[in-house]
Simulated assay, not measured.
Amino acid sequence: MSLTYQVLTYVGLSFGWFSFFAWKRKKRMDHMHTMIIGMSMGMMIGLIAGLLFGSEYKGDLFLSTIWGMLIGGISGMIIGIPFSLLSTIEGTLSGIMAGMMGAMLGEMIPMEKMEPLLFLFIMLHTGCILLLSNLIGTGEEETPNRKRLITLHNPITPPVLLIGIFIWFQSLPFSNLSANTDQMHSQNHNNQPVVQEINLIASDFSYKPNRIVMKKGVPMKVTFQNTGSVEHDFEVVSTGKFVISSEANDNHQHGNMGKEKPHMHAKPGESATSVWQATEEGTYEFYCTIPGHKENGMVGSLVVL
């Protein structure tokens, strides 16, 4: 499971548990408590989601901002609805603003700085849940049976939970997230760009990897290998944004010989290579042009930084 899915899964599960916990005790809370809950949850989830998608879709701030705003705003709205209209509005707006800020952070900060910042946000999110749960549960009478259970009122639970999150966080695949960026930023002492190399494998019916990151103006050597049982190709959806500098063989260009739409083709068990570079930053889709293959999932994205 990728880093983004793991973090969002944890955030979603913790948010769901806390929402259920808070909703059951809403009768004992005043408007100030419910507003704080809505704003806190919307803001923390918006920041985390925005940061994740800002790093995932570097070069496409619009897309990462939309995702951050949606997840943050919907989270703040969901937790606020059972309380009051005011809590719903506060939670939604807080989530939207936090999603925007998180996406900008993910876009601006280098990949090597993302790990400590994401860890900080996750611990803040967890800390908010622990503090708010303790605030909500203050004054609850513990029955003998409940005292024997591990609950948030047990002083051992918070440190055990935080240590567990710390251990889990160390296992997240940050190395995979930063590998492409490290390669793009490598240059020789004369400040001349080196050729980036990428192996793109086509099977029936998917690409591996299905997301490629490259640097504008830096040549990229693409080796397209077909391990499937039928012929496959891939074409980048762009016009005039790429320059093909060399081709190792006939890549079945379909009339796109140019210097505009990178297009490579390989029969089963064969491969093709090509060197090209981007002239403009952005996020571009690529897919298999053979009829029916795109519809079966042979699509991916190319991010130019």
Rank of each mutant, 00 (worst) to 15 (best):
N134V: 01
I136R: 03
S175Q: 14
V194N: 03
D182P: 00
P144H: 02
T181F: 14
R146W: 06
I198W: 05
V160C: 06
D204Y: 11
S178M: 12
N134S: 12
P144G: 09
L124R: 02
R148N: 13
T126A: 13
T151E: 02
P158D: 01
L177C: 05
K208W: 06
F174H: 09
S203A: 13
N190W: 04
S203R: 07
A179P: 01
L132A: 10
I156P: 01
L162K: 01
N190I: 01
N145L: 06
L200P: 09
L152K: 01
L200M: 08
L132M: 15
Q196W: 09
T143C: 02
E140Q: 10
I198N: 06
V195R: 00
P209N: 08
P155G: 00
I129H: 06
T126P: 03
Q187F: 14
S186E: 15
E197F: 02
H185L: 12
P159Y: 04
R148K: 07
P209W: 11
P159M: 01
I163H: 01
I198Y: 09
D204C: 04
P144K: 03
N199R: 07
N176D: 15
L149T: 06
I156D: 01
V194F: 06
H125C: 03
P173G: 11
S203K: 08
L120P: 04
V194Q: 14
T181I: 09
Q187H: 11
S203G: 11
S175I: 12
Q196F: 06
F174N: 08
L152R: 00
I163K: 00
L200A: 10
S133I: 05
S203P: 05
K147Y: 07
H153P: 00
S203Q: 12
L177N: 08
T151R: 00
L120V: 12
F119A: 12
H125A: 07
F166Y: 14
H153M: 01
E140T: 08
S203W: 04
L177G: 07
E197Y: 06
S206Q: 13
R146S: 14
F205M: 15
P144T: 04
T181S: 15
F174L: 07
I165E: 13
G127I: 03
C128G: 11
V194Y: 02
G164A: 08
F169D: 15
S206T: 05
L130Y: 03
H125D: 14
H189I: 15
G127L: 07
E140C: 03
N191F: 14
T151M: 02
H153T: 07
P193G: 05
F121D: 11
L131W: 06
H125R: 04
Q170E: 13
N145A: 10
I201A: 10
I167P: 01
Q183W: 05
N188M: 10
F169C: 07
I167T: 09
E142G: 00
I122E: 15
S175W: 08
E142D: 10
K208T: 11
F121Y: 15
P158N: 02
R148E: 13
G127T: 04
N191G: 15
S186H: 12
G164T: 10
S178C: 08
P159K: 02
F119T: 10
I163W: 11
Y207A: 03
S133H: 05
R148I: 00
P158R: 00
I150M: 12
P155Q: 00
I156Y: 01
Y207E: 11
F169H: 06
T151N: 04
Q183M: 13
H125P: 03
T157V: 00
N180F: 07
Q196A: 12
S133E: 11
